[in-house]
Design a protein around this nucleic acid. Structure first.
Lengths: 120, 120
DNA sequence: TCTGTTTGTCAATACTTGCGCACACATGTT
DNA sequence: AACATGTGTGCGCAAGTATTGACAAACAGA
């Protein structure tokens, strides 16, 4: 089994703390490592830094260096690998998945909601 | 941080072998544990059984007992938690995600393919 | 019914990986 | 120089994984 990008992404998303960090960054435009660490009293700066490193290596966050600060932001198109996997597995129930994503994204732009039978 | 369903799902998806098992089941309607184990020469039946247990506890696969066989199938709506998380984080670039899912589902039924600017 | 075989899981054990912490270092500011 | 921001390193602890051996359940044949 060749290690692909999916490994890094799914491994990074496996940790609840990293998902919380990712959500936290997503709520704001950018956050410094210190600001992120401030939101997790039970975690030290070292731990947060390690998580950020993993998220960065997985391509889930981007780092912008500004003086002695490092601003972290969410990478625009990182979920492609996740979606690719989901689509390959859930071709059966892809209709629900598509509608769920669509509903959260553009609730009024759902036009052709009909899904044809899967090819597999 | 309260342990939710997301934990089990993301943890289950973190392992490449489990993702391979999930993909394998997705390619077929149903597969017995033995058939799944046969596809992984480097793994014993015990390991596959453990993985199936984790996938089942995460709600990603369903088990149908038929005599001494156990047929495993992909659960229809398990990706909701994943999609929910992605939508909460990637609201910015969510339309790309939606179109990606749509494209995989119904390549000719993609109507609103326009991508608006992200708020970031 | 009574073996014997197949299917699949459970239990216990070693191995590997990952997390969090304390310390030190590099970088940048004043 | 003194201080602040972040990260790299090494250590201890916990969690997860694969293997071996044994067990429960179901079927086939005599």
């Amino acid at each position: 089994m060749a290690p692909s990008d999916s490994d890094a992404i799914f491994s990074a998303l496996a940790d609840p703390t990293r998902r919380a960090i990712l959500s936290l960054i997503g709520e704001h435009e950018e956050l410094t490592a210190g600001e992120i660490a401030a939101h997790f009293d039970s975690l030290g700066r070292t731990a947060v830094s390690s998580h950020l490193r993993i998220l960065r290596l997985a391509g889930l966050v981007a780092e912008r260096r500004d003086g002695r600060f490092r601003h972290y932001s969410v990478t625009p198109t990182p979920a492609d690998a996740v979606v690719a996997f989901l689509t390959s597995v859930y071709q059966n129930s892809l209709e629900q998945l598509a509608s769920a994503v669509q509903g959260a994204a553009t609730p009024e732009d759902v036009s052709g909601g009909r899904i044809e039978e899967r090819s597999a």
